[in-house]
Simulated assay, not measured.
Amino acid sequence: MTAENEIVVELLEDARKFSERHSTRDSLVRVLQVFKKNHSPKLWEIYEKTEEYLPSALGIVMAMEKGGFIEPENGFLKLTGKGKNLVDLVVPKAVDYRTMEDFRFGVKMPAELKRIEGEIRRISQELIMKDEFDQAPITADSVVLKAYHMISRGDIAGKSVVLLGDDDLMSIVLGLTSLPKEILVIDIDKDVAGIVEKYSKKLGIKVPMRAVVHDFRKPIPKNIRGKFDTFVTQPPDTVLGMLLFVSRGVELLKDEPGMVGYAGFTKTGCPQLGILDFWEKIVGMKLVISEVIPKFTVYPGIRTEIKEVEVPEFIDYPPKQFWYISDLIRLKTTKRSKSMFEGKTFEGDISDYRRDVLKYR
């Protein structure tokens, strides 16, 4: 065994103890690539750059601290001389990471949508996020960018649009454009539904728009099933949470090919085998994956998922920077599309991140 392999094997053994077997050699290399570019990153920069699963990257960082490869300093993870030797040994060349801004480069937001962004920032201050509903709205600029993308794809103008959960207030953005034929918001939180109803009237939104309270663990009511052209959701980042919300979205779409669904999807909050399971079941529902845009939507620094890992004292918490970023996926129905939960009641917690940690290791 080479000197490099001996060090890596020992480091991974420690990392797997911390991460419950989620840390791999590839995960280690990706974390070390961040250190190659920046000798003193924060944990949140590592997540943002690598999109590694939460326990995986944290396990590696904790093993590096234990092994003397890094020294925590005011929230920064500073490479020691031993750590620099490890990075030089394992990572031959630094990676030029593409950021969220790279993927947004060249997107010129219409002035009207920028004005709407300011409106959303103001209204969102009235919402109190509830952990029991796993609420964590994306940033106002991400909401508007997402709306602009959906509009540009022809999925909003003249369409019946349904939102599965709306703590992001996407319904208000779409309503203020006056483009949709109608908008329905379905949310488990009566306060979110109330805010939507309140501002649809207060802002004089002309698009027919209403909000209803419903728990997606229960079947979709028959009177709204199969009525919509487009669904939009930013579901809990568990495998079952994502599948349930997409499945309910399919039930709400018209039973014909070419209907569209949008969902947020993150690799940071989901283990690799869980990601595989998710995509297999999406294909199993006979949905076409027409688009996956990486690093598209940004969340505020504090995320519910971080509660599912024990953050060591040497990590700066809560984070003050953006680090949790999700991809945007666009799905299209076919004549064979079928919801995997249609008519069924889901038993259990759809935001149980601990279950994913244990099931997909």
Rank of each mutant, 00 (worst) to 15 (best):
I195V: 14
I195D: 05
I195K: 01
E197S: 15
E197G: 15
K198T: 14
K198Q: 08
Y199T: 00
S200R: 10
S200Y: 12
S200H: 12
S200N: 11
S200L: 08
K201P: 00
K202Y: 07
K202N: 05
L203F: 10
G204W: 05
G204A: 13
K206F: 02
K206V: 08
M209L: 14
M209Q: 06
R210Y: 04
R210P: 05
A211R: 00
V212K: 03
V213E: 10
H214E: 04
R217G: 15
R217D: 14
P219D: 13
P219Y: 13
I220L: 08
I220P: 09
P221T: 09
K222A: 15
N223V: 14
R225W: 03
R225V: 13
G226V: 11
G226R: 02
K227W: 09
K227A: 10
K227G: 07
K227T: 05
F228T: 09
D229W: 12
D229I: 11
T230S: 12
F231D: 04
F231N: 09
T233H: 03
Q234W: 13
Q234E: 14
D237T: 15
D237C: 08
D237K: 03
T238G: 06
T238H: 03
T238I: 10
T238W: 00
T238K: 02
T238D: 04
V239R: 09
L240K: 01
M242C: 12
L243H: 06
L243Y: 07
L244R: 05
L244S: 07
F245Y: 12
V246F: 03
R248D: 05
G249P: 07
V250G: 08
E251H: 12
L252A: 14
L253N: 03
L253W: 00
L253T: 11
L253Q: 07
D255H: 06
D255P: 02
E256G: 06
G258N: 03
G258R: 01
V260D: 05
V260Q: 03
V260F: 13
G261K: 01
Y262E: 05
A263Y: 02
A263K: 01
A263S: 15
A263P: 00
A263T: 15
G264L: 14
F265Q: 02
F265R: 01
T266W: 05
K267H: 13
K267A: 12
K267M: 14
K267L: 09
T268V: 15
T268I: 13
T268H: 03
G269T: 08
C270W: 00
P271M: 05
P271D: 10
P271Q: 01
Q272T: 14
Q272G: 10
Q272I: 08
G274S: 02
I275R: 04
L276W: 00
D277P: 00
W279Y: 15
E280H: 09
V283I: 15
M285K: 02
M285T: 11
V288E: 14
V288G: 11
V288Y: 08
I289M: 11
I289N: 00
E291S: 13
E291W: 08
V292K: 09
V292C: 06
I293D: 01
P294H: 11
K295L: 10
K295E: 09
F296G: 10
F296V: 12
F296P: 07
T297L: 13
T297I: 15
V298L: 11
V298E: 15
V298G: 05
Y299V: 03
G301A: 11
G301S: 13
G301L: 01
R303N: 08
T304P: 10
